[in-house]
Design a protein around this nucleic acid. Structure first.
Lengths: 325, 325
DNA sequence: CTCACACATGGAAGCGCTTCCATGGCAATA
DNA sequence: TATTGCCATGGAAGCGCTTCCATGTGTGAG
């Protein structure tokens, strides 16, 4: 500790022969400074290997420079899902372009975001899979710099995949290819997007005079395998299964396979998300795209660039027909 | 929540009728405080919805409370790989237990870690896939709170999968099941773990009088597909392919498949990592485990709990035999 | 040659918090 | 009752930085 203190702005100012105020101006690029001062400060910075202290900076300027990603209501199973990782890596890239850092926070379902968002060193907040109540716990001061991936509020713009029409596309494809008894495996019931998708499914089924067969899921592969068994037990004549997550669909594939059911000959299987592995499975998975990177980038940009507030932007999901359906 | 500014410690102290010092002691739990003070402060905190400012706290206490994860030399392809996501989510959990946040930072190969690590608001640093030079750019003040996932230095403890013996296990399995002409698809050449694995492979091949067939890879599925073609073109009689990454192995599976090659009848395929999808592919992938969560947890704990420095801990990798080999 | 005006500059006041230190009160001891 | 010691307490000094403001210094105009 002693002696090895890293250089402070004072050290730089002293070495450059200017005041701390001038050094600060030069380094932040805000305010006037003569060419001479600029040079000397730049040299001092280089010589001392000066690195501004983010904490002090955030405190003094009252405007933090970090993008926080809060993931609501996660479960351990999320570890297997590339989803959060994709959101995060994308956000990190967008943030890096603007020289801001990114941080990840798990927020239990029902917990407040105040602790997280009440910090001076936050530049923005992206809430993944929020609930409306959760969004209301965001302090006013942070409202203008918050975006949601999922549902939003009138203050918080949101970005999400249009899985209503995505589901529509998938189910219609199933119908058009002659499937008659189509079951659906949903996701966590507290997610609004799950409702949208289920509604779309039920709509089509009813419109075409078909029976609806819904089993609830949790986006995991394990649940998919279990759901496959459940479905074939309750409705043995099922000839298609649509899962609202590719991971789950892959699990369904596995569960069906274990029962000796041929895909797609006996039962068609379709997923949602078009994850990287969808084209690697045997049979390759028919699914609908989920432009996670685009969505995450839009959300990150919205908070970093102070975009409009309280709008919901839906990103289109397009059908990808492969072998499983 | 009322007014523009959120409550400060001063507001709490005033509301509780104590000094700021006392309020601070109560809130941090450090130092003495009478039951009466504790009560009044707790009430004031609840009433005002007080949330400590992380920046100010880090600045004043000179000890940040955030775990930074720096990923070295990433490429966009890493987006498809659950690896970083798994490290991150695990670290986030460990960190959350200690009420510290986590941040993610991309660091280009060859860049310095000084900017990142020179901040007062950092509680610890975990460097993923570091190079030795990169580790040397970590400021001394941060050395004791830094860990590496991959190679370490004498100051920085490191945690990694023992892919030397893991590779050993896989290749031996290939040999024992009658494969004679075994090719290997490696990973990025700048990663030390790639060297260890390749060495292990070459050792066995030489020891058993076999020819080595090495193709370099980058851990992506796309490269795996390309490598499959390359291998079968250069060495048409190859009867087994070992890829140092499941993602790549999945790509190999795909590439081989496209050439009408049967797996494992014609060519056996084995991967490394045992990712969630390994058991979902057709045929299910034979591989060797990579306990990413354990490794990440150990690294996170090492920096958060100030563990020993400069040690390398290898985590065992065990063979998982499925259908592809 | 003077006046005004712009601009670069340094002093100083914080940002919200922790922590050292001196003080005062109180119970236990003599 | 006088003394010791401990503990709760508040005052005050920063942590490293930004930024307001008053002060010089040089320029162009009058």
């Amino acid at each position: 500790m002693r002696g090895q203190h890293s250089a402070t702005l004072d050290d730089v100012a002293r070495a450059a022969g200017v005041s701390r105020a001038t050094a600060s101006r030069v380094i932040t690029g805000q305010g006037p400074a003569s060419a001479r001062s600029r040079d000397r400060v730049a040299q001092a910075v280089a010589k001392l290997g000066y690195v501004p202290d983010a904490a002090a900076r955030a405190l003094a300027s009252r405007s933090g420079t970090r993008l926080a990603i809060a993931v609501i209501g996660h479960t351990a199973a999320i570890l297997d899902d590339p989803y959060v990782g994709r959101v995060l890596t994308t956000a990190a890239h967008i943030a890096a372009e603007r020289e801001v850092g990114v941080s990840l926070h798990w927020v239990p379902l029902g917990a407040s975001l105040a602790t997280l968002a009440g910090s001076h060193n936050l530049g923005g907040l992206v809430v993944v899979n929020p609930t409306q109540p959760a969004l209301h716990t965001v302090p006013k001061a942070m409202r203008g710099r918050t975006a949601a991936i999922g549902v939003g509020t009138k203050d918080v713009p949101s970005f999400d995949v249009d899985n209503g029409s995505g589901t529509d596309g998938v189910v219609r494809h199933l119908v058009n290819t002659g499937r008659r008894r189509i079951a659906m495996v949903t996701g966590p019931s507290w997610l609004p997007c799950v409702d949208r998708a289920r509604d779309a499914y039920q709509q089509i089924m009813r419109d075409s005079g078909r029976e609806t067969r819904v089993v609830s899921g949790d986006f995991t592969a394990a649940r998919g395998a279990a759901a496959a068994k459940e479905i074939m037990t309750r409705w043995p004549d099922t000839d298609a299964v649509f899962a609202l997550s590719d991971l789950t669909a892959l699990g369904v594939l596995d569960g069906l396979h274990a029962q000796g059911i041929r895909i797609p000959a006996d039962v068609a299987v379709a997923g949602f998300d078009d994850i990287a592995f969808a084209c690697l499975s045997r049979p390759a998975l028919t699914t609908s795209t989920h432009p996670v990177e685009e969505i995450a980038a839009a959300a990150a940009r919205a908070v970093l660039d102070r975009g409009d507030t309280g709008q919901t932007t839906f990103f289109p999901s397009t059908l990808v027909v492969r072998e499983s359906a």
